[in-house]
Design a protein around this nucleic acid. Structure first.
Lengths: 191, 191
DNA sequence: CGTCTATTTGAATGTACTCAAAAGCGGTGG
DNA sequence: CCACCGCTTTTGAGTACATTCAAATAGACG
């Protein structure tokens, strides 16, 4: 079965017909590494579900420094929630870090599906709630933990990502410079 | 009309009967300054809507430092979304900073209301989406802005709060020590 | 193989914190 | 009503954490 249906069936149960209807509203695309699939300033029109490969969402500030909001590998959703919900230009870039197969679900199709398969409201509500929970936790971590503790936490929380993601990207996620992360790792090894 | 109905009617339209039904499921309580209405480790059973006064939600880390997730004054909702959704013990404290009148809506009553007045699903979905938008923005601000910029942004975003909230609380919100915020303000005045 | 980017290392700098002490301010009780 | 207590705010000196800039090294990819 497709990965996205497995993902949905963790939370709700779809009949074979509903599964087909759902899939018919999605589109599969293949992207090469370094492709920007959403630019800051654009309106986000899709939710993206990653079948394979690796994506990231990030912002660029006035000093041209990148900060990563989230990574998404196999089985993860990604998008610019603000822009997707409000249909206004967003602030996030979404970029492919590793050749990826992605399932696209447009906002319109998602709304249609809510009418055709009301159960899906429940599924997407749970998704929304999950990120609603994750965000404040990360915010509080950034306020109260040292760089070293944030790095530790990242390693424990996303062991699979450490293998795939470059150190520079991890630095942009935990909020330090790549140079500092390098020194910090060296220091931590000595212990 | 009550403040909470005004708040709801910004997004959806309730009939007088629905309004009465809604209110009948809520409870009004008065709290004195310094009351802790939710402790970390407890399960959050209510959403709180502030009619008057001032509340804050915050965490305490291992070094006994407080970090504020949100303030809530007149017309704002507050709660521990994680705990409320999962019904597991949460990490947030909710405290009264200024004598307050608060409307309590229990999770059970909220669920019941979803069945009795389906429109309310829409209202609470919008509330949820709003915080879903606000959280990543603040996270990215904390990663990419200096303390001075974060303070500036806080002042511009919440002009009414600056009057009411002590400097110590603002420091705990933007993520600096009270001493540093004091020095920073002095420095900023010189310009 | 050469080029481009990521990583490491070092020195100098800056931002924010800690600790300590003094000054200000608000509320409470006598 | 005012004196005192507790808490907030200010100020200063010393320190720690993280950044910047620069240069060398290592890896990845066509």
């Amino acid at each position: 079965m497709s990965l996205i249906l497995e993902n949905i069936n963790k939370y709700i149960t779809l009949s074979p017909e509903e599964e087909q209807l759902f899939l018919s509203k999605t589109e599969i695309r293949h992207y090469k590494t370094k492709t920007i699939i959403l630019n800051a300033g654009e309106v986000c029109k899709h939710s993206y579900f990653v079948n394979s490969g690796l994506l990231r969402s990030f912002t660029i500030n006035d000093n041209i420094v990148e900060h990563i909001l989230s990574f998404a590998c196999e089985g993860w959703w990604i998008g610019d929630m603000y822009s997707l919900i409000s249909q206004k230009p967003g602030t996030l870039f979404i970029e492919v870090l590793e050749d990826a197969e992605v399932v696209l679900l447009s906002k319109e199709n998602q709304e249609q599906l809510y009418h055709e398969i009301p159960k899906l409201e429940r599924f997407f509500r749970i998704l929304t709630e999950n990120s609603l929970v994750a965000n404040p936790e990360r915010l509080m971590d950034n306020l109260s933990l040292s760089a070293e503790e944030r790095f530790d936490k990242f390693c424990k929380k996303y062991p699979t990502l450490i293998q795939k993601v470059s150190q520079k990207q991890i630095a942009a996620y935990i909020g330090v410079t790549p140079e500092f992360l390098s020194k910090m790792k060296a220091r931590m090894l000595k212990k």
